[in-house]
């Protein structure tokens, strides 16, 4: 399976569709519109990269997620800010004890899953902002090992949480209740089948078919694994600035992969080169299948 880069969206600069200092998180909604957060703004792009609308956030955003009803969740330092689909601020959730730095948000049914990079674990809330339980906190290292500074998660069609545990070079699966269901990945050094460096993968997302798309840093690349942890494809090896890290990733219904270049402040879009991959077996449509 091979991918080719078809488009670059946004970039570094002062134009309305560009980001000046930071581009950190992306997400896709059900219609395929691309939400990107960076600086202190949310920008919404069409699939062809034209800016549809934009609005400010109260603090710099680290991640974004879009609910079925169009509600936009933006993770920030010490809070999650919510907007309606037109960009009107709804409210902000603050939980001084449990939200240090929100670097990923997952939405499934009545659950809002918030990755707290400061405390290195996932918090489960309901849609009214009530805390339910922690995920991934109960181990000897008191949470995920994220020397890269960002904790990322994604939710698959069956409601299983996939979380990157870069310090252990693993992708881990958890139930909503926090039970470890499975994991794959190990350090393999120069061999691309596993993960390299000190702490990879840094970010991930799950396709409808349960494939896992991850990004690595140093050197920056994106890869696709099947649900058992078998490497299917290296999406891109040299498409990103060498200083990139914590590159957020999203995948749409057509199998196109969106990866943030955190240095050049643009989003690279990759499309599968063979038709089989493009029309991957469809399973039950899932909420939040495209993670923030």
């Amino acid at each position: 399976m091979q991918y080719r880069q078809v488009r670059v969206i946004s970039g570094k600069g002062s134009q309305p569709e560009q980001f000046a200092t930071a581009l950190r998180g992306i997400a896709l909604d059900r219609t395929g519109a691309l939400y990107a957060v960076g600086d202190s703004e949310v920008k919404v792009f069409d699939a062809d990269g034209t800016l549809r609308r934009r609005w400010p956030t109260s603090k710099p955003g680290y991640c974004v997620a879009v609910d079925r009803d169009g509600t936009v969740y933006v993770g920030q330092e010490r809070q999650v800010q919510r907007f309606d689909d037109a960009g009107k601020p709804l409210d902000a959730w603050r939980d001084t004890e449990r939200m240090g730095l929100v670097t990923a948000i997952g939405l499934i049914e009545d659950n809002v899953l918030i990755a707290d990079a400061r405390d290195r674990c996932i918090r489960r809330y309901d849609k009214r902002g009530r805390f339910r339980n922690d995920i991934g906190k109960d181990n000897r290292t008191r949470g995920f090992l994220i020397p890269n500074g960002v904790l990322d998660l994604a939710i698959d069609a069956e409601g299983i949480i996939h979380a990157a545990n870069p310090g252990r070079h693993r992708v881990e699966r958890y139930s909503l209740e926090g039970q470890l269901l499975g994991r794959f990945g190990r350090f393999t050094g120069p061999d691309p089948r596993g993960f390299s460096g000190c702490c990879n993968p840094t970010n991930l997302t799950v396709t409808r078919a349960g494939r896992v798309v991850v990004t690595e840093k140093a050197g920056p690349r994106a890869k696709v694994y099947d649900a058992t942890g078998k490497l299917l494809a290296i999406v891109a090896n040299d498409a990103f600035d060498q200083n990139c890290k914590n590159m957020d990733v999203a995948v749409d219904a057509q199998g196109r992969i969106y990866v943030v270049d955190t240095v050049r402040l643009h989003i690279c879009v990759f499309t599968p080169m063979d038709d089989r991959a493009a029309s991957e077996p469809a399973s039950a449509p899932a909420e939040g299948a495209t993670k923030p």
Partner: peptide, 13 residues
């Protein structure tokens, strides 16, 4: 420093 994510004494235990 770009990030400040060293584990604390409490984390290490």
């Amino acid at each position: 420093r770009p990030v400040d994510v060293a584990p604390t004494e409490e984390d290490i235990g």
